[in-house]
C-alpha cells in the first residue's frame, strides 16, 4: 500500500514528538501493509506550523537514517500538507512547501469548520501552474457534503483523498455512508491514514471495507495508487 498523507516527521507539527515515536508509527504502517510512505507535515499558519522544506529535509534524513538502522522495509518520501491560502502558490514556488516526492501532486487542506476559501479558485490557481492538487479529507469539511461538488472539483483537475478513519466509521455512520457513495461514483482517488501519534493507521481495516463493499481491484486502485510515485 501507498500512504500519501502522514504526520510522521517528528518535531514539526502535532504528528510526532520524537524520532522514537515516528519509528513506532512507521512500524505500525508496515504492519498494515504499507510499502511507500509520504511524510507530509502541516504547513498551517494559524496553527503555527510553518516549518519550511529546508528544515524538514534535515529531519527527514535523520528519520531515514533511523529507518535504515532498524532495517525497516519501507520507502519514505517528503511532501507537505498545505493549508490553502492566497500565498500557497507563491510558497510552493519559493520552496517553503513542496509537492509529494518528485511528483506534481500537492496535498492541500481546507477549513474543517467553514468555507473560508474559494476551493474552485484554489484548484484553478494550482492547476494553472502545473500542479495536481489533492484535496485532503474533504469528507471532514461540513460544507463539502454534496456529491456534485466532487464531480466539479475533479473535472477541474483536483484529486480526492479520503481518510481511512472515515471508511471504518470513526467519523460516524453518516460520513461512512457518504464516502462509500463517493467511491461508488468513482469520485475518490486515494485513501490515506493521516496518521498522528493520536490517530493510528487503520489502512488495513479500511482496505477490507472497500474490498468487501466493492472489489479487490477497487481497493488496490485507492490504496495503491501508483501515480504519485512517477
Amino acid at each position: 500500500m501507498i500512504d500519501i498523507h502522514t504526520h510522521l516527521l517528528p518535531f514539526v507539527d502535532d504528528g510526532s514528538p520524537n524520532i522514537e515515536t515516528s519509528i513506532e508509527l512507521i512500524k505500525d504502517e508496515i504492519k498494515q501493509g504499507v510499502t511507500d510512505i509520504f511524510v507530509t507535515p502541516h504547513y498551517f499558519k494559524h496553527r503555527g506550523y510553518l516549518s519550511p522544506v529546508v528544515e524538514n529535509v534535515k529531519i527527514f534524513y535523520k528519520l531515514l537514517e533511523e529507518v535504515n538502522n532498524q532495517n525497516l522495509e519501507v520507502n519514505l518520501y517528503l511532501g507537505t500538507e498545505i493549508y490553502y491560502n492566497r500565498h500557497t502558490v507563491r510558497d510552493l514556488e519559493a520552496g517553503l512547501t513542496k509537492t509529494l516526492g518528485d511528483s506534481s501532486y500537492v496535498l492541500i487542506e481546507f477549513s474543517l469548520y467553514e468555507e473560508d476559501e474559494d476551493i474552485p479558485e484554489a484548484i484553478n490557481n494550482l492547476t494553472a501552474k502545473g500542479y495536481i492538487p489533492i484535496i485532503a479529507h474533504p469528507e471532514r469539511y461540513p460544507y463539502l457534503i454534496d456529491i456534485k461538488y466532487y464531480t466539479y472539483l475533479r473535472r477541474m483537475g483536483a484529486k480526492i483523498q479520503i481518510n481511512a478513519s472515515a471508511l471504518i466509521g470513526d467519523y460516524g455512520r453518516k460520513i461512512k455512508k457518504f464516502v462509500l457513495k463517493l467511491i461508488k461514483n468513482n469520485l475518490v482517488d486515494f485513501v490515506a491514514s493521516d496518521i498522528h501519534d493520536f490517530r493510528m493507521s487503520n489502512l488495513k481495516k479500511a482496505y477490507e471495507v472497500v474490498e468487501s463493499s466493492f472489489s479487490k481491484v477497487k481497493a488496490e486502485e485507492l490504496f495503491n495508487n501508483k501515480t504519485v510515485l512517477n
Binding site: R86, V89, R90, E121, N124, N125, L126, T127, A128, K129
Partner: peptide
C-alpha cells in the same frame, strides 16, 4: 478572467 484563461491569480 483568471478562470476564463486558466491562469493563477497570484
Amino acid at each position: 478572467i483568471q478562470r476564463a484563461f486558466h491562469k493563477s491569480n497570484d
